[in-house]
Amino acid sequence: MAQQEREPASDGRTDRSLTMSRAMVEAIAHEMREDDDVFYMGEDVADYGGIFDSTDGLLEEFGYERIMDVPISETAYIGAAVGAAQAGMRPIAELMFVDFFGVGMDQIYNQMAKNTYMSGGSVSVPMVLTAAVGGTYNDAAQHSQTLYGTFAHLPGMKVVVPSTAYDAKGLMHNAIRDDDPVVYLFHKRLMGIGWMPAPDGPKTGVPEDEYTIPFGSADVKREGADVTVVTLGLHVHRALEAAESLADDGIDVEVIDLRTLVPLDTETIADSVAKTGRLVVVDEDYRSFGVTGEIVASVVEAEGGLADLEAVERVAVPDVPIPYARPMENEVIPDADDVENAIRDVHASE
């Protein structure tokens, strides 16, 4: 079942590492081989293999009928995925950049997300909506956002944000098998694309066999006693970098990778904060009304959470659109130094 962690059947090849895009593609290919009802729709997913390599190599194996290039009509093809899912298929629809969600948003939040509830549970929408997220390469205000907080805010969608190849594969298997709509958001900078070099970290060992990672299970990517950092996506790696550098100064940082926003693993966060008493939430989405505020609120609401919490900071994109020019983009997207400073602040506070 989708929500149970399934270890790979055998340990497979432990010495093989993959980029995040290859790990995602491997999971999709596996599911497509197993289940004829799985198919992929999007712009430039066939011959191009996805602008960010999200479908690289799939056309050769599955052909144009199942790896479908579609017209630039997001409302139509995302809505078509909803309809096909309700008809019993398991479509994956790709939004090339998450920033384009406005064009098909009605299908996403009024149909995909709500049909199960509005039907009193008699209808299910087992589809995956994939999209590339994130900045750091100067593509400006319409092509650099993460926006995952918006999907998580609107009820009815499970929201997945992988940060490593290992997680990306297990979460993708789970996403396709899940009977509910899943929004699967991959950060461009993590995909391991030649022309957009990834940081060290997202390329990991990936077993050849299938395995699932249950939603709602945050992963402690680094254990530490002094400060808890909660983050996701690209910023897992920036937080780990900050943690490494702070280790030299004797500050022991725990880094929690949420992996999914919906469902949210509040327990892992609360346990960590109970241990450290100090919390930094790091996010590449906008600051206000978003992920950082939600995580802090969840800690405060947890039993004993308020008593545990000695200091808290948020590090996120200030409430401005993403600017184009390098000095300004660097200013608004948090880097490892910003994370480090915030950790020092909460660590120093009484």
């Binding site: 593509d139 400006a140 205000a141 659109p321 600017p323 184009y324 020019a325 300004m328």
Partner: peptide, 16 residues
């Protein structure tokens, strides 16, 4: 080129 004296002071870039 993302410069201060650009049409949008470097905020927009070539698509904006």
């Amino acid at each position: 080129f993302g410069r201060e004296t650009g049409l949008s002071k470097g905020k927009g870039g070539h698509m904006h």
